[in-house]
Amino acid sequence: MDWQAISLSLRLSTMTTGILILIGLPLAWWLASTRWRVKFLVEAVIALPLVLPPTVLGFYILVAIGTRSPLGQAYEAITGSRLPFSFQGLLLASVLYSMPFAVQPFAAALSTVDRRLMEASYCLGVGRLATFFRVTLPMAWPGILSGIVLSFAHTVGEFGVVLMIGGNLRGITRTISVSIYDQVEALDYAAATKTSLLMLIFSFIVLAITYALQRKPVQVWMTR
């Protein structure tokens, strides 16, 4: 089995999920609490990767970060390295690609939290940030966790975008799904079967966890 690809996929997914927590939570919180009339436009943009073919997304990202784009040139001028066909480029693409899988469950979970509880917290003199971490977040936790699990799993399974902008480089951009594709093309069915089976088991466990989390009533936190 291609352990290098597996470890790369895990590293990519962990970092993607970490970034998505950092930017997804504030974004979801804003979506859940804003009364802005054109909020639906922002929601549509975030959900785009759900319906866009990965090839379209990959193509746009490749053009956007390529050596001919201002963004790509600026990145190269600052860091001295290039984004396409690099781990950083893959990370950027993964964050965009998996964003709806984090933000949507986050926003759904945060919007179910009873506003009166937060207001009570404010009245008791607790700041907004502290209220978010001590009241809102714990109450929305099952939804947050399923967002984390889903975005992690979705990044592990990513294929089209990786193929478009990754370049299939061993140890740098050859993720587990691309590695399986390679093994099939090399007629190495034994290896492909093993890796695929691992992915199947992994996916099942992830979904089982997700549904188990959704089954848990939110009241667990309320009755404390």
Partner: peptide, 10 residues
């Protein structure tokens, strides 16, 4: 994260 030099990790 993005500005950190290209590192091939472990």
């Amino acid at each position: 994260i993005f500005l950190s030099p290209a590192r091939s990790a472990d």
